[in-house]
Measured scan of single mutants.
Amino acid sequence: QKEELKEKAKEAVKRGNKDKARELLKRAGISEEEAKKIIKKIE
């Protein structure tokens, strides 16, 4: 489940939808700070 949400978040970032990505990562139980780092890494 968590990995699936991370994959979806990756796709969202690639489409330029960072808010959606952050939302998905939060749903995966990832903190706001972690989510920001992950999104930065994907960009």
Rank of each mutant, 00 (worst) to 15 (best):
G29C: 07
E32Q: 07
R22I: 15
R15C: 14
R22M: 15
E4C: 14
A9K: 01
L25T: 01
K20Y: 14
G29Y: 00
K2G: 09
K10S: 06
A12N: 04
A9D: 02
V13G: 03
I39R: 00
E33K: 09
K26S: 13
A21V: 03
I42H: 04
R22D: 14
D19F: 04
E11Y: 00
D19W: 05
D19G: 07
K20R: 09
L24R: 05
K36L: 14
E32Y: 07
K2Y: 14
K41H: 10
L24G: 04
K41E: 15
A9G: 02
R15Y: 03
I30A: 05
G29Q: 01
I30H: 07
E23S: 04
Q1M: 13
K6V: 15
Q1N: 13
A12S: 05
K8I: 07
E7G: 06
E4D: 12
K18S: 09
K14L: 14
R22C: 15
A35D: 00
I39H: 00
R27G: 13
L25G: 09
N17V: 03
K10A: 11
E32K: 06
E43W: 09
K37C: 13
E34C: 10
K14M: 12
K18V: 14
L24F: 06
L24E: 09
N17S: 05
K6E: 10
K14E: 08
R15N: 14
I38F: 10
R15T: 10
E11P: 01
V13P: 01
I30Q: 02
A9E: 01
K18R: 09
E7Q: 11
E4T: 10
D19N: 08
I30K: 02
L24H: 09
I38M: 08
A28N: 00
A12D: 03
K6S: 07
I38V: 05
K40Y: 10
A21N: 01
R15H: 11
L25N: 06
K2I: 15
E23F: 00
I30G: 00
E4A: 11
R15D: 12
K40Q: 13
K18T: 13
K40M: 12
K41D: 14
K10M: 11
Q1T: 14
I39D: 00
A12I: 04
K36C: 12
K37F: 04
L5H: 03
A21L: 07
E11Q: 11
K8F: 05
L25Q: 06
S31H: 05
V13R: 01
E23M: 03
K8E: 11
Q1W: 15
G16L: 02
R22V: 14
E34P: 00
K26Y: 06
R22K: 15
E4R: 12
I42E: 04
K8A: 13
K40R: 13
E4M: 11
K40N: 12
S31I: 03
K14Q: 11
R15P: 01
K37W: 04
S31P: 08
L25W: 00
K14W: 05
I42M: 12
L25F: 03
D19M: 08
K36A: 14
E43I: 11
K36W: 09
V13D: 01
L25R: 03
E7R: 12
E43T: 06
V13I: 12
L24P: 01
E7C: 13
K10D: 04
E32D: 13
E7S: 09
N17D: 15
K20G: 08
E3C: 09
K8Q: 14
K18I: 15
K20P: 01
D19V: 08
K8P: 01
E23I: 02
K6C: 13
I38R: 00
E43K: 05
Q1F: 13
K18H: 12
L5V: 05
R27E: 15
E3H: 09
L25M: 02
K6Y: 15
K10T: 09
A9W: 06
A12V: 02
K26A: 15
K8T: 05
N17E: 15
K2R: 12
K41F: 12
E3D: 09
K41T: 12
A21M: 03
K10W: 05
K20M: 12
I39N: 00
E32T: 07
E23L: 02
E11V: 07
K14A: 10
E4N: 10
E3L: 09
S31E: 07
K20W: 14
E33W: 04
K10P: 02
E3W: 04
S31N: 08
K26I: 14
K6N: 06
E23Q: 04
N17H: 11
K36F: 07
K37A: 13
A12R: 01
E33A: 10
I42W: 15
E7Y: 06
Q1D: 13
K2P: 10
I42P: 00
E11I: 08
I39A: 01
I42R: 01
G16A: 03
G29A: 00
L25P: 15
G29E: 04
E32R: 06
K40G: 10
K20I: 12
I38K: 01
R15I: 09
A35G: 03
K26M: 13
A35E: 00
R15L: 12
K8M: 14
Q1G: 11
N17C: 13
G16V: 02
I42F: 13
G29N: 01
K41W: 13
E4K: 10
E3A: 09
I39G: 00
L25E: 13
K40T: 11
K26L: 14
E34M: 08
D19A: 11
I39P: 00
D19I: 09
R15K: 10
E11F: 00
A12E: 12
K40H: 14
N17G: 03
A21W: 07
V13H: 03
L5K: 02
E34W: 03
K26H: 09
N17L: 12
K40D: 15
L24T: 02
E7H: 08
K6D: 03
K14N: 07
Q1P: 09
S31D: 10
I30S: 01
E34V: 06
L5P: 02
K20S: 08
K14P: 02
R27L: 14
A21K: 01
E11H: 06
L5I: 06
L5Q: 03
G29I: 00
K18F: 15
N17I: 04
K8V: 05
R15V: 09
A12P: 02
